[in-house]
Measured scan of single mutants.
Amino acid sequence: MLDDRARMEAAKKEKVEQILAEFQLQEEDLKKVMRRMQKEMDRGLRLETHEEASVKMLPTYVRSTPEGSEVGDFLSLDLGGTNFRVMLVKVGEGEEGQWSVKTKHQMYSIPEDAMTGTAEMLFDYISECISDFLDKHQMKHKKLPLGFTFSFPVRHEDIDKGILLNWTKGFKASGAEGNNVVGLLRDAIKRRGDFEMDVVAMVNDTVATMISCYYEDHQCEVGMIVGTGCNACYMEEMQNVELVEGDEGRMCVNTEWGAFGDSGELDEFLLEYDRLVDESSANPGQQLYEKLIGGKYMGELVRLVLLRLVDENLLFHGEASEQLRTRGAFETRFVSQVESDTGDRKQIYNILSTLGLRPSTTDCDIVRRACESVSTRAAHMCSAGLAGVINRMRESRSEDVMRITVGVDGSVYKLHPSFKERFHASVRRLTPSCEITFIESEEGSGRGAALVSAVACKKACMLGQ
């Protein structure tokens, strides 16, 4: 009897593995994704193909990295998701002549009506938060230079001027797309009239992360975010950046690689679950690469896999709870928690219980395998993109072996128990001629924006502006 049951459990697990095998990517698959990513990057950089390229390769006008001589107080704003952060950054000489960066910050959550109302409502709310922060720190009387981390696709015309191309991540505030974001912020500050600010720089969160990590390690020339969304930036040779005049030196390019796949480059790798996630998203047909990796989508992918296993009578005796059938019910943090389970399955059992399920031991094991399959594919897909960037940098610099540091931020990278190990191992397999160091950014977005502002202020002083 026991043997029969054991055989049935083994057969069930084997069927589960057959279904989950769809998520496995072979090294040849990853090399294919990497080569296609490089081709799209090239198209994004070139003037004649930029418009139709899915990977936009947006110039950021960040050319210099901090040298350690900029000092002063800077205000930093960070808008990239449902939370908005205001930070005071003091850049100065530390002990023994070292450079020191001290920060104080406060988080504000953005109400739904500000995210989806008008641009005026959104930026009025942001300036209200700045006003509140300055009151708390008794700094209303000071006109501070301000660095703005704005983590949406922007076409820069200068370091302090950028046109919002399109909202992502659930934002829909009308009247912002096609307009200068810094102008919208300046107008809102003017409307309030109770404080003055000098907006000197606007950067993407990947750029802010790279600059913040450069402060720790001067070989950091790539910034990457794996959180709600997924994106990367890197220092490109100016001669390859056709959208900006000049051939000397390097400029940081914001790849906006989340949109890779929007022209069909990933079609052969998309599964039924991916198509369902895409169809029910706020932007169907867009940001397809990001939807395979980002935390906004990972939990939902797992939920759809679990429903398939229920329908195949391989999980929960073929019956799903009402909660499990509800879109968004299986949160991405559950994926991390399930994979963090120590082996007694308590954590998995508790999560499934909150979803109205009474799982068996085998159910718990199957749910864990589903989570591992989805998150491992995410790590491997992400590795193909980064390997594409790094191999490109090595080739354009004609280096036999390139040493490089990548600064990384984002909740999936930082909080998932195995993502970074799987990701690092896969990147290294795909970049055999590179020695890569990964560092995690601390308060990256805010500190990085302030350091970019410090560079901009120093330049302005040198130019006598």
Rank of each mutant, 00 (worst) to 15 (best):
G264I: 01
G72T: 00
N391H: 06
I436D: 01
I293R: 10
D73R: 00
T255D: 05
S280G: 13
Y61I: 00
T326M: 09
T376R: 09
A320V: 14
L164K: 15
R308T: 05
R191V: 05
F74Q: 01
S151Y: 05
R46S: 14
G227P: 04
T168I: 08
K104G: 09
K90G: 03
K56F: 10
G227H: 01
L415I: 09
S441L: 08
G92R: 04
G385S: 14
S373G: 09
L271F: 01
K296N: 13
E290R: 12
G193L: 06
Q347Y: 08
D267A: 06
Q24C: 14
L45K: 06
K39E: 11
K32V: 03
K56W: 03
F260V: 05
V401W: 13
L355P: 06
D365N: 03
F148S: 09
E440K: 03
H424D: 12
G223N: 01
M41I: 09
K13E: 13
M202D: 01
G464R: 12
V406H: 00
F195I: 06
V226F: 06
S340L: 06
A456M: 09
L88S: 08
A201T: 02
E265M: 11
K296D: 13
D363R: 00
L134A: 06
V207E: 05
D365T: 09
R422H: 15
D160M: 09
A387N: 02
A10W: 11
E265I: 04
D4N: 07
I390Q: 00
M402L: 08
P66Y: 14
V338I: 02
S453W: 14
A449F: 10
E196V: 07
K458L: 14
E236C: 00
E177M: 07
L122P: 02
L309D: 00
D113I: 10
F133D: 01
M8C: 15
S336N: 01
Y214E: 01
E96P: 15
C252S: 02
W257R: 00
L288V: 15
Y214W: 13
A460I: 05
M139Q: 11
I436W: 09
K414Q: 06
A208V: 04
R303A: 03
K104M: 12
K56Y: 14
N240L: 08
D124C: 06
G294W: 07
R63I: 00
G170T: 14
D247A: 01
